[in-house]
Structure formats: structure tokens, C-alpha cells
Nucleic acid binder design. Structure first.
Lengths: 218, 218, 218, 218
DNA sequence: CATGAATGAGTCTTCATTCAT
DNA sequence: AATGAATGAAGACTCATTCAT
């Protein structure tokens, strides 16, 4: 319950309200699942009235879609910042940054991941979700492949296949997220991180060391 | 299949009906998603009457749960057969069999995987689903860790961590399934298989060769 | 409230239920108007549950449309019976029968007329209603024109225009219905009948007498 | 239009707004029907803000009622002007003027007639509408009866019934309006006018000629 | 056992009305 | 006086569940 003390009748900028509702939707999907979510639940979580969701999003379906897009866009932006940044001193540092980003608190935040996999679980039967999930992925996969290729070139490794390594990294991270999310006792986040780091270290031995034990504060 | 003697003539129909309904449920979840499924859809798909689902499963929820259990049990049985079989001549052959099984047609069948990820997507918010998903996984993870440890021992590798490799393999396969399911053009099944094989080959170089290009007929 | 004493859970033939709902709809439109009608009102009037309307008609809109068609079809059938019957001994008798039918109790029944004019009032903005209202009217107008032409021929009247007389008769009856319905004190049904009879008598003096004073029991 | 002196600068806007909203309401009823009209539609049509309707009319219901009264008052005023005018040289001329008025462009304007019949269609179930529709009608009917009686007296016709003729004329015009409005192809306005003229000509042969073929420019 | 018409609680959606600005 | 974001009651529609046949 996020009542912010305001008389709540006060009109707020459209974007603020939409953001408020999207945040409430994320919480509700994490708590009740995609098939258990209702507009009543979402608006109550936001501390607003029932009608407000349709006022700002026209329909429940559009609210859900914009929520999905919000989550994917946020991740894509963070990832793109790393892949495009000029600040990295080395290819290894960039790959490490990518890895650390993928297991940073904002990314592995329970609620957001729950939303992500809730939509992926329905993606097969909902072309709209599928498109929203896939669009940015293709781009990211290309960029990561390029990054990995650069690392292989630097190492003089002509045998390895950058595309295969990239596809593997992406899927591995997805799988680790999913398993750590569903049952953190079986796969603690620290262990998940070490698995991913190990994967990269064995592919890019010259760039990434194995010894770092994990992210602090996880 | 354990035939229960001569009285099966009477006892069988009940199980047949349940199986019929579970198969229809699998198809419907794949087609409409967990949040789009209705008993009317399922029973129509099965060519039966509306009331039959409640007659045999008491409630929609139980039908869904049994469907999930059906899918996980089927996978667990196949995997256990490999992990426990006496027929393998070498550890490498057993690991390869595990890999091939994970990408064999019955396992990567679109409908079943869709069901699997549909339930996983809701697992975070539904303890019942979570338990059904996790139970057998813990066991499998232990057995796979043992298998990998055996391989490492045979290779004299004392540096590698079998538990980490096992967790990585399981998550990698989950991630590959998910990505290949959601968008097979971005990640074709053949490529997914090569990624998984590459993962195992780099961990168990002495046991598994890289050159095998993929499963036939995929 | 039309509870017919049955346990109401008993399944009835589909057509019987539809008829039951259409009758309830007619009553409700007469009582609350097209813009005041709700499915709750209709189903309560029928003594049935809320969901039944959508079960048999798919949507409120289709229930309303079928109700309109029911009313128009009933009138058209009665009128067609007169226009096509072989039983009339003379043209005058047929015209008189037409007139008497137009003011017979089943036709001028308050509820049905209210439904008729409720839909006509919306017809301008609802092509679906417009079509349902117009379709049979065109046919009837043609047949009435033919009948009037026959009467004029028999009378040797070559000056009068049968088409004009028919259009006039139809509109006059519509207007009389409407005015008698809206305010029976200003235009009692008996008077409305005399007006219509007078119209016909002045056009077909040889066939129809003026003296008959009106329908009994009105 | 009675200008209220110099303070009109301040007082006028209120009336202007109401008129603006009534005109928008007329358009919207014609376009969407009484059951499809919403305040959002009306205020958007008027180019004003959502809250303005309640500000000036207190409620939607009152806006609708005032719209109905606006339309009926306009018609009644035009009709009264003819019935009371001192300018007519003969009874025949006055009757003809009445007829021509009833089919003059401002009266048969599509939107206004649509509004008129939309309310009439609901009148049976809404005493408020019924009263608004009937009030002036009674008066008009009396005056028209007087006019017709005068014509009959002038013609020495003692057999005809002026009240019956007046009731017939009023209903006939209503019916013609309705039919021409709903389906102008089946009953073109020119034909409707000829029907009405024919009705009057056959009742008042000495006063009204048949030969005039119709209104120009229709 | 099986059927499917009927039920009615639960949801989404609309929209007149309110009120802070 | 005017605005339009926000409200929440009311209504259409869905669908798991029941039960007479």
C-alpha cells in the first residue's frame, strides 16, 4: 500500500500517474502472477481508484504491455550503456561490466524478474508479448557477439565461435535468473554469478579472471 | 505401464479420461497461455462435455497442477533412466546421452516446453507450482553433480567445481529451451544444441568431443 | 416477476429460453426504454440468472436485435396473411381486414408498440436497427400499393395514385400508433381507428363505408 | 431576441454556452442516438471541457430535457406564428402555409427530427419526456381543429368532423416525417409532401388545389 | 459415468459527477 | 467561469462450478 499522504484527488502529470501504475503493476504481477492480476489489485496497490487504469491506459491489456515494455526498455538501456560506452579501458573490463550489470541489484530485483518471466511464459501464445520480448534481444545479441569477437581477436583465438558464445551467455544468464528466482535456496544469487563468471572466464581466459568470488551484498 | 489384471476393463476408462484431459490441457496452454485457458476450451479440445473436468479433477486448479506434474514427471523419468542406467560403457557416453536427451524431440516438443515455462512464469507467485517445479530438480541436480564429479575425477581435474558445472548446465539448458521456444529464428534448435555441447566439451574435454555438429533431423 | 414455479434450474429447450428472454426484453423496453434497459432488469423480469442472456444471445446487442426482429416478423406475418389470403370475397373486405388488423389488440399492444418506436427512434444512428426496420416494410408497401391499385381499377378511378395512397396509409397508421401510444387521452385508440378508416373511406368510397364506429372493446 | 440592455456583456455568455451545448447535443443525439450519447461526446462536439455540461445544466438529464424543449419550442413557435398571424388573406392560404411549414427545411432538418423521434421513442417510459412532448401538442391540436372547422364552415360542409381531420393531419405528418427520416429512399421528402397535400386537398377541396407538385429545392 | 444448461460471483469497462487548480 | 484528472457506482461479460437429466 503506497499511499503517499496526498489527498489523492490532486491531478498529477500524466506521465507520473502512468509510472505510478506501472510500478504497482510490477508489484502485483510478482505477487499474484499474470493470471491472477486484476485492475482492482493494481489500483489498490497504487492507492488510486478503479477507473484510473482505463483512464490512462485504455485497457488492462495495454497496461500490461506497457509494463512489459517498461521493464525490457530499462534493461536494454542499462546494457546498451555498457556496450556503447567509451569509458572502458579494455575489452575484458567491458565484458566484466556486462556480467556485473546482469547480476546487479536493479537487474535481479525479484519483482522485475518475476514480471519478465511471467510475460515470457505467455509469450508463446501471445504474439504481442513475443514481439515486445524479442525486439531488443536481437540487437543486444548482435552487439554482444561483436564484443566477444573482439575479445577472441585480441586473444588470437581463431577456433572459438563468438556467435555461439554470445548465444550461450545470454541463455545461461536467462536460465540462472530463472532458477535463482524460482528457488534461491537451490541456486543462490552468489552461486549464479559464479557460474556466469566461470562461463566467461573459460571462454576469455586472458580477459577475465576466475578468482573474484561474487558480488558484495548479495 | 502396469496392467492391473483383468478388472482393468472397468478401471481403465477413468485413467484414460484423465490422460485425455491432460493432453488437451497441454495443447490449450500452449495455444492460449495459462491466463487464457478455460475449461470450456480444454474440454472442447478433448471432444468431451464441459462438466467432465470437474468430475475427474474436482477443480480447474487441480487439473492444471496434475498437468504440470505430468510434464515434469515425464522429463524426470527420462532423465533418471539415463542417470541410473547400467548400460553406459563410459562416463562420457552417459553425459552425451544426457545432452542428447535434453534436446531430443519428445523433450523439446513445443507444447510441453510451453507448458513448462508457462508454469515457471507463475511459479514465483504460486507456491504450489513452485514446489511441483522444484521438487525433482533438486534430486536431478545432485545426481548430475555426482556424474560430473565422476568425470572430473576420471580426468584428474581437481580444480573444477562439479556443483558449479552442474548448476550451469541445468540453467544453460533452461535458458536455451526458453530462447529457442520464444524465437526459434533467433536461436534455432540446432544452434542451441551446439551451445550446450560446447559447454560440456569445454568442461569435459577428455570425455566429449566438439566436432559432432548436431542432432540429426532437427 | 414471471416466476413459473419451476425449480428454474431445469434445462429447457433453447428456443423456449430465447422466447422467454425476448418477452422479458419487450416488457423491459416498454418499462424502461432502450437507454434504460439492462441485462439485470431483463433477466430478473424473466426470473432467471444474470448470465443467461449472454449464454443464449452472446451479447446484449444481439438480444436487442433479435427482439426487434421478433416484433417486426410477427407484424409482417400477420399482415402478409391478409395480403395473400384467398379467403376474401372482395377487395373492400381485404382492405377492411388490413385496417382492422392494424388496430387489433395484438398489434396495438402497448409493449410491442413501445418496442417498435424505441428502436425506430434509434434507427437513424444505428444502421443495424434501420435495416431490421426497413427490410420488410418495402415489401409490404409494394403489396399494399398493388391492393390499392386493384381497388382503384375496380372503381374505375384513373385519377388517384395508388402509390401515394399506400405511402399515406402506412405513414398515417405509424403516426396514429405513435400519438395514441404516447398520450392515449389526447388520441384514444377508438378515435385513431376512425381516423384511419376515414382515410380509407375517402379514397375507396365504393369499397369501404364510413359508418362503422370502431373496434369493440377498445 | 430581447436584448437585456447594456449589462448583456456579462449575462450573455451563460446563455451562449447553453445554446452551444444544446446544439452539440442535437448533433450528438442524431449521430449516436439517445442511448449512445455521453457528456464527453457532447462537450467535445462543442469544443468545450468535460465539466461544463454539469456546470450549466446540473445534470445530463436536464441537458437532455432542455434540448428536447428547445426543439419542441422552436417548432411550436413557428406553427403558432402561422395559426395566429393576421396576414393570411384566406383560410386556404393559412392551411397551405401550415403544410408548407411542416415540410420546410428548418422543420424537416435531419438532426432535429432525429432528436424529436429519439425522445418520442423513450417517451412511453419517461414521463418527463412524455410531458415535454405532449404539452404543446394539445394546444396545437385545438388550434388546428378550429382552423379546419372554419374551412369546413366556409365550404358549407356539415358532414365532416374537424377534430378527426386535425388528428389525422397531425398523425399523418408525424408518420411521414418518421418514414422519410428512417429511409428517405423508400419515402422521399417530395413524396411525403405530396401525400400530406393530397390529404388536405381531399378534405378541403375548395381551399387547396392538388396540382402543386411539391416544394422547390427539396 | 456423462452431459451441458444454468448459475452468480468476479472482472473489465464506461461515464456522470466532483473538485482542486 | 472553466478545466479535465480523478472518482466510484453501475453495467456487460466471463467462466468455474453445479446438478437435473
Amino acid at each position: 500500500m503506497t499511499r503517499t499522504g496526498n489527498k489523492s484527488r490532486r491531478a498529477l502529470p500524466k506521465e507520473v500517474r502512468k509510472e505510478q501504475l506501472i510500478q504497482a503493476t510490477i508489484k502485483c504481477i510478482a505477487k499474484h502472477g499474470l493470471s491472477g492480476i486484476t485492475l482492482a489489485l493494481v489500483t489498490r496497490e497504487a492507492g488510486l481508484s478503479m477507473g484510473i487504469a482505463n483512464l490512462h491506459f485504455d485497457s488492462k491489456e495495454k497496461l500490461l504491455l506497457e509494463t512489459l515494455q517498461h521493464v525490457t526498455a530499462e534493461y536494454a538501456a542499462g546494457q546498451a550503456a555498457i556496450l556503447e560506452s567509451e569509458d572502458f579501458s579494455s575489452t575484458g573490463a567491458r565484458i566484466t561490466a556486462l556480467l556485473d550489470f546482469d547480476f546487479s541489484p536493479p537487474v535481479i530485483e525479484k519483482n522485475k524478474l518475476a514480471v519478465w518471466f511471467a510475460f515470457l511464459g505467455e509469450a508463446k501464445s501471445r504474439p504481442t508479448y513475443q514481439r515486445a520480448c524479442s525486439r531488443q534481444d536481437s540487437m543486444a545479441q548482435m552487439r554482444i557477439t561483436e564484443l566477444f569477437q573482439l575479445a577472441l581477436d585480441e586473444a588470437g583465438d581463431t577456433a572459438a565461435d563468438a556467435a555461439l558464445l554470445a548465444a550461450g551467455y545470454i541463455s545461461l544468464v536467462d536460465g540462472l535468473w530463472l532458477n535463482a528466482l524460482v528457488d534461491p535456496r537451490r541456486l543462490p544469487w552468489k552461486k549464479a554469478y559464479r557460474v556466469a563468471r566461470h562461463y566467461l572466464a573459460s571462454a576469455f581466459a586472458q580477459h577475465i579472471a576466475l578468482d573474484k568470488r561474487g558480488l558484495d551484498g548479495m
